[in-house]
Design a protein around this nucleic acid. Structure first.
Lengths: 252, 252
DNA sequence: GAGTTACGTTCGACTATGTCGAACGGCTTT
DNA sequence: AAAGCCGTTCGACATAGTCGAACGTAACTC
């Protein structure tokens, strides 16, 4: 681990949590001498990764990170496949559709298909949700035992709402059920009033590389069997296009 | 400039151009010993900025960059304002609407309002266009003299199509006209068959912080006076909401 | 309006840290 | 079965990053 690079990414991480920060704030939060933080910041600035506010001198993320994010999406074969089938799933279920991938303990949304009712909805690409509190995350963790073990062992299970499951034993049991059915559900565990249903997506190597699912108002619970089937079918279809030999693919 | 951080960002930059690269490829392109590149890569990997393909060992951008990009968008006041007025501009003009900011010699799209005809269109948030070949870029450069000087002085004016203006003298003249009218146009200079009209957005300090404009098929040229007026009004309205005292604001 | 504080930035010495060449081991190719 | 390629690990060296101190500027106070 290279120290200065690690520190640079840490700076970006802190800037991610607090939109705008002064140099001294940043240095304090990272336990660094201001001059050290300054050197790193200037390097990031030279590449457009951070920008400095003219008046206040505070730093914030820069446009270059957005460019990077967009290129990442373009490189993902998973995403291009998800677009097609999300549309279908949205039509069949009548709900918004999300596709996500796992990073450590979080799910990052890589595609968002708004509800087909034509209402205005915020695009959700790029948002992150704690894996243990989302249907997408559970669908992934159930088929990624190493990552699940790591998450359950660590003390990372933060509570989002009163419904969030943070007991490792209970969560483990849920994951076992998810692995059995290849279908994960979540009701108000991340956001009050919101529920989700998701299924895992596999690639040619048989690894769970993502998950697709629907988001629905908690009051509309429970979905019909046809809806559950539609989610599973979308996941299966995308997996097939990615070269997966069958679906689902149990790990080990 | 801190060497290792600079190299890390360079790696991300190269990964941006070539989707997937092996360690040796990467090292060759950056003129680095493989072991040096490896150390940096592993640090980036530990933070999810890059991921390594299981089978091929090749590296590509990771989900963390997408998360960063999304947070950047959230911090931008310009973006939240643009959303509202883009909708209006889209309705009035009947065309797709883009809002962008300038980074060095490129425009990064921070909001994209699809054409209101209901057809399926790719989201364009995060894509970059050479500033000198886009209406958005010209609208910005015309009100950012220092950045314009830098671009015109440097040898960065790449040609995109047969229509791209790469002569600094011609471009300077265009920018002067844009500054006068507070309205920039572009016809097939970036993409054949596509034209654009854009106007600059100012913040409370009077700096041009972005531009908003429409994208239309080149065959639909020329737009009506009402369309030109609509673009200018959108830019003026957003500027006002950002605290700009008047519109346009001539530099110096 | 002078004094004071806080902040971003610059500078230079020290040494901790990243760099690089060489060697290892797994995989594919011939 | 041997040779080549590639990603990775290791350790010595010296470069390059780090940190404390000093500077200049802007805001705040009395």
């Amino acid at each position: 681990m290279i120290q200065s690079v690690d520190r640079a990414i840490r700076i970006l991480g802190v800037l991610q949590g607090a939109r705008r920060l002064s140099l001294s704030d940043l240095a304090t939060r990272l336990d660094l001498p201001p001059s050290t933080a300054h050197g790193i910041l200037k390097t990031l600035q030279a590449h457009g990764m951070v920008v400095q506010d003219r008046d206040s001198n505070r730093y914030q993320l820069g446009p270059a990170v957005l460019k990077l994010g967009n290129v990442y999406l373009d490189t993902l074969e998973l995403r291009s496949r998800a677009v097609t089938w999300s549309e279908e799933l949205g039509r069949r279920s009548g709900h918004a559709v999300r596709t996500g991938v796992l990073t450590f303990d979080e799910v990052v949304i890589i595609h968002h298909e708004p509800r087909p009712d034509g209402s205005r909805q915020m695009p959700e690409v790029g948002i992150v949700i704690p894996a243990h509190a989302s249907a997408l995350g559970k669908a992934l963790l159930a088929f990624l035992p190493e990552q699940a073990d790591e998450l359950l062992a660590g003390d990372k299970l933060r509570s989002m709402t009163s419904e969030t499951v943070i007991d490792p034993v209970v969560l483990r049991k849920q994951l076992d059920e998810v692995a059995r059915d290849a279908l994960a559900t979540e009701k108000e565990e991340a956001v009050l009033g919101e529920a989700g249903v998701a299924a895992p997506i596999f690639d040619a190597s048989g690894t769970a590389v993502g998950a697709i699912g629907i988001v629905l108002p908690a009051v509309d619970w429970a979905p019909s069997d046809a809806t559950f089937a539609a989610v599973r079918e979308a996941a299966r279809n995308i997996s097939r296009e990615l070269g997966a030999s069958r679906w689902p693919i149990q790990p080990r």
